[in-house]
């Protein structure tokens, strides 16, 4: 599958934003008090900025972005529509929460806590819907896998936790728990991704060109003449295979630079004074960003679509 940059940016940026929203909500609810005004407002603004950047980026791959509102109508059958509805719905409690945080910092903590919980629930549901868009496609074996949506959610929670740990260290407000939690989540996400890779590598490739054409009774089937001289949309969109030859190297890089190294840096940050801890957390954030971008690129580039059978693939 062709990895559209807009979709990669969307899923990683909004994933991190939603994860940040979740952990910020938990810190409000569990803390029983509002986090320091500046920190909470900064974190909320960053989360909403990431989510909004992602959502705007996602409209870039549309042929008719001006009609994007129509995508909110078919939530009964379409995970893409559900994602849009949930993403917009999450803005309501998150926006109100930001308003309360900003205009009425002395509010009884139950009010922001309630809004925070609603925003967190919306965030989790939105990321789950994003994962389900892919997991619900039977045409791509690597996506039609029960681990796809859980990995999307885990990566979102992990990158959000990394961001909150960075902000907490930057504001010098008790970052230790968040840093350790982020490290644990990164390791968990890395493990889940590694399991996912093992599963897709071991999956039987039972779809054949013989079944796609129905000509297997005659014998082995291979293409003789293509229907067109240059790649068409189907080949450009679904027949993308550039990164596959580097897949195993990229996987190791994503695991090492994106999950293991940031997790170690965060554990280090948990034991350092605020300023070096901030730098360690910043390095961890950059590493996790690179890792998650590489992971998302591979998610597309490694996925083989069943339609490639008509264009020369023997199995899918």
């Amino acid at each position: 599958m062709n990895p559209a940059y807009s979709v990669i940016l969307f899923t990683t940026a909004s994933g991190a934003g939603y994860g940040l929203l979740v952990w910020l909500a938990f810190s409000v609810v569990l803390g029983g008090t509002l986090p320091t005004g500046n920190l909470a407002a900064t974190a909320l603004v960053l989360a909403l900025a990431l989510v909004t950047t992602g959502l705007l980026a996602s409209t870039l791959h549309l042929g008719r972005p001006e009609r994007a509102w129509r995508a909110l109508t078919q939530w009964q059958t379409s995970w893409l529509s559900r994602e849009g509805v949930l993403a917009l719905a999450t803005y309501v409690p998150a926006g109100l929460w930001l308003l309360v945080q900003w205009l009425w910092p002395a509010a009884w903590w139950i009010l922001p806590a309630l809004l925070a919980l609603l925003a967190a629930a919306g965030a989790v549901a939105t990321v789950w819907a994003t994962g389900m868009i892919y997991q619900s496609l039977p045409t791509i074996r690597a996506w039609s896998e029960p681990l796809v949506a859980p990995v999307y959610l885990l990566l979102s929670l992990a990158t959000g936790a990394v961001l909150l740990a960075l902000l907490q260290a930057g504001f010098a407000t008790s970052w230790h728990v968040m840093a350790i939690l982020a490290a644990v989540l990164l390791i968990a996400a890395g493990l889940a991704k590694w399991l996912y890779w093992r599963r897709i590598d071991a999956a039987p490739r039972s779809w054949t060109v013989e079944s796609a054409t129905g000509l297997g009774s005659i014998g082995r089937v291979r293409p003789l003449e293509p229907p067109h001289t240059q790649p068409n949309f189907v080949m450009r969109e679904m027949g993308y295979a550039v990164a596959r030859k580097h897949a195993s190297t990229l996987r190791m890089m994503a695991l090492g630079a994106g999950f293991i190294a940031p997790a170690l840096l965060l554990l280090l940050a948990a034991s350092l004074p605020p300023v070096p801890a901030t730098f360690a957390a910043l390095a961890a954030t950059l590493g996790a960003a690179v890792g998650v971008l590489a992971e998302r690129w591979l998610f597309f580039a490694e996925a083989q679509h069943v339609v490639t059978l008509y264009y020369g693939a023997e199995r899918a």
């Binding site: 549309l62 042929g63 972005p65 949309f233």
Partner: peptide, 26 residues
């Protein structure tokens, strides 16, 4: 008149039956 050109339908089709019109955006 209502297609937004998200191309998800082409991903969902095993037969490669749907093609994106790059000029028309649908």
């Amino acid at each position: 008149d209502t297609c937004i050109g998200c191309k998800l339908c082409s991903w969902a089709c095993p037969y490669g039956a749907r093609e994106y019109d790059y000029t028309d955006g649908i």
